[in-house]
Design a protein around this nucleic acid. Structure first.
Lengths: 335, 335
DNA sequence: TTGAAAGCGCTAACAG
DNA sequence: CTGTTAGCGCTTTCAA
C-alpha cells in the first residue's frame, strides 16, 4: 500500500501480469480476462493510479485537449464578461474534464480573416469549441468545409455548413411573447440588440406570437445594448421617448430584464403590477433577484453536453448535424 | 517548402544537422553555434514548425499545464460570473499560453476540507492558481506548508503561509475616500459586503482616510451584496432608511457603483452633482458607462503576470513571497 | 488471452 | 560546438 505506483509496469508487477495487459485492462479492452481485468482495476483504484495521459497522447498522436475559444469583438466587452458565457464555459470545463480532456481557454481577436486557420494550424488541441459565433459565421462555414473537429455555440441558420449547438431562439421569443399576451399585456416592448443574430430571432419569434394571437397587441422594438452597464440608459431613454408606457417587456436576456426592472422600479412603477417583465437565459440570478424573474430557460448544462458530444464525434471522424435545443418558459414573480 | 515537417528530425535533415542540435537550437540553449541556431530557427519559422509539447512534457516529466481553479461557494454565484474574475482568467490565459502552458480550468465546490489535497493528488498539472480565496484561507495555508507550486489571487494577510498576489485594498480604500473628501464630500457611504476580506480592507482604508483628513466627515457602512442583481435593492433600501442622503458613495466594486448610479439617477439625483460615486476595479465598463466612472484601478494584467511568474518560480522549486500591488486612482466623470 | 518488443517525438548525458 | 544514444510511459502489432 505504501508502494509508489508510477507506471503501468509498477502495477503490472503487483498484479503479476505484463504492462500490456494492464494497459488493456485500464483502457477497458474486452480482450482481457474479466477476472484479471477486474483485479487490475481494483488495484489501480486502491493505489489511486492513473496512467499518464501525456504518454498516452504521445503514443496515440492525440493532444488530449480541447480549445475553447472566445472571439472578442472590437468593443464587444459583452462577450467575455457575460455571465451566460461564463456559465457555459464552466459547464464545458466539467464536461470535458469528465471525458478526459483538458480545456484550453483562449481569447482571440478576429482581426484578420484567417484567425481560425491560424489557430487550427498551430495544432495544439484535438478540436475547437467556439463560444459566440457573433458575426464570424462565414469564417466558420469556410473553415468547416475542410476541418471537421469544430463546433460552435449559437444560432442555427438554414444552410450553414458548420456544426452549431444552441437554443431555438425563435421559439423562445414566441413563448415569451405568448406568455405576456396570456397575462393580458397589450403593449409589448422588446429590449435587445438585434444585431446579434440570436436577438433578432427572439424578436422575430415574438412578432410571430403577436400575429398568431389574433388580438390587438402592439410590439415595439427598443434597441438595447447587451452589456449590462449600458442597457440601463437605453431603457430609460426609451421610456422617456415613448408616449405610452408598455405593460409587458420582453428582455433579450436576464441581465437586460433585471436592468429594466431597476429602471421601472426607480420610476415608481411596480413589477409585475404595472409592467410585466420576462427575461431570457434563466441564469442563477433570475432566481435570486427581487422580484424573481420569469424567463425563457436555455439549458446550459445540456448545451455543454451536446457541444462536447458533437465535438468528440467529429474528432473521431464522424460528421454531425447541428443541434437546436428547446427553450422552456419558467414562470416566476415578474410576470 | 511543400515538405511536411512533423518532427525535429525532419527539420534536422533539412538543416543538415542532428536532431539534438535542432532541439537545442529551438530551446534557445546557448551552446549551439549562433549561425546554425539562427538558420534552424528560421527554417522552423518558415515551415511553421513547433516541436511537440507532448513529447517534451513526457521526456521532461512535466505536465505543461496549469490548473486554474475557481472555488465556488455555496450560493456565491458572484464568483463565477463576476466580470472581474472573468477578466483575470482571460489575462491568465494569455499569459500562460505565452509561457507555453495550457490553462486547465476547473470549478470546485469546497465542500469537504480536503478538496485541495484531492486536486493536487490527481497530479494532472504542474501547479495551481486559485482564483478567489474567499473563506478558504486556512485550507490554503495548510496545503502550502507541503505543496509549493500554488498561488492565489486575493488579499494578503499578515502571517499567511501561502503565496498570494493581490491589490493593496486598504490603500485603495484610503485613495477612494480621500478623493471623495478632497472633492468636498462630508457624508460618505460605503457599499459592499464586508464579509469578503477584500471588502473589509477597503472599508478600513476608507475609515483611516476619514480619520487622517481631520475634517468633519462621516462614513456609514451599508452592507451590499456583491452580486449585481442584488445590490440594487440593497442600495435602494439604504437610501430609503437613511435620514440624510450621502454626498459621496464609495462602492466596493465598479458593478456596485454602476448600480448605485442607476438607483440614484432613478430617484432624480444627479451624479456627480448631487452625489459623487467612486468604484473599485476599473473594469472596461467603468470607461463605457454614463457617466464614466471614477474608480480605483486594480491592474489585472500585471496581476496575472505576477501570478504566473510566482507560480513558475515555485514550480522550479523557488519559494516566493506574496505580492501586493498598488491601486491607482482613475479620475473620470462620476466624481 | 497474454507477453515481447517497437516506437510516438523529444531531451540530456556522454563522447567526440 | 555537435552527434550518438538511451529512455520518458504508454499502446499496439505480432507471436505464442
Amino acid at each position: 500500500m505504501a508502494e509508489k505506483i508510477r507506471t503501468i509496469y509498477d502495477l503490472a508487477k503487483l498484479a503479476g501480469v505484463s504492462g500490456a495487459t494492464v494497459s488493456r485492462a485500464l483502457a477497458g479492452k474486452d480482450v482481457v480476462n474479466s477476472k484479471t481485468a477486474e483485479k487490475i482495476r481494483k488495484l489501480a483504484a486502491d493505489h489511486g493510479f492513473r496512467p499518464s495521459s501525456i504518454a498516452r497522447n504521445l503514443r496515440m498522436q492525440k493532444k488530449g485537449a480541447i480549445g475553447v475559444v472566445i472571439p472578442l469583438g472590437h468593443d464587444k466587452t459583452q462577450h467575455i464578461s457575460d455571465p451566460f458565457f461564463m456559465t457555459l464555459i464552466g459547464a464545458l470545463a466539467d464536461e470535458l474534464t469528465e471525458k478526459g480532456f483538458d480545456l484550453v481557454l483562449s481569447r482571440i481577436i478576429p482581426d484578420t480573416d484567417d484567425w481560425l486557420n491560424r489557430m487550427i494550424d498551430s495544432d495544439r488541441v484535438d478540436g475547437y469549441i467556439i463560444i459566440g459565433q457573433s458575426n464570424q459565421s462565414k469564417t466558420l462555414d469556410r473553415v468547416a468545409q475542410s476541418y471537421l473537429p469544430m463546433v460552435a455555440w449559437g444560432a442555427f441558420a438554414q444552410g450553414q455548413i458548420h456544426c452549431s449547438v444552441g437554443t431555438d431562439n425563435f421559439l423562445g421569443g414566441m413563448l415569451a411573447a405568448s406568455h405576456l399576451i396570456d397575462k393580458g399585456c397589450k403593449k409589448l416592448a422588446f429590449c435587445g440588440n438585434t444585431q446579434a443574430i440570436e436577438m433578432a430571432l427572439r424578436l422575430d419569434g415574438a412578432k410571430e406570437a403577436v400575429k398568431q394571437s389574433g388580438k390587438d397587441v402592439s410590439l415595439v422594438e427598443t434597441p438595447t445594448h447587451l452589456a449590462a452597464e449600458l442597457s440601463g440608459t437605453d431603457i430609460a431613454a426609451f421610456l422617456d421617448s415613448t408616449d405610452e408606457m408598455p405593460d409587458g417587456i420582453f428582455a433579450g436576456s436576464d441581465l437586460i430584464a433585471l436592468t429594466a426592472i431597476q429602471v421601472l422600479v426607480g420610476r415608481g412603477l411596480s413589477v409585475p403590477n404595472d409592467v410585466r417583465v420576462i427575461g431570457f437565459d434563466d441564469l442563477l440570478l433570475a432566481q435570486t433577484s427581487v422580484p424573481t424573474l420569469t424567463t425563457i430557460r436555455q439549458d446550459i448544462t445540456s448545451g455543454a453536453k451536446h457541444l462536447v458530444e458533437c465535438l468528440l464525434a467529429r474528432i473521431n471522424g464522424a460528421p454531425t448535424g447541428s443541434i437546436v435545443l428547446n427553450p422552456e418558459l419558467i414562470q416566476r414573480a415578474s410576470t
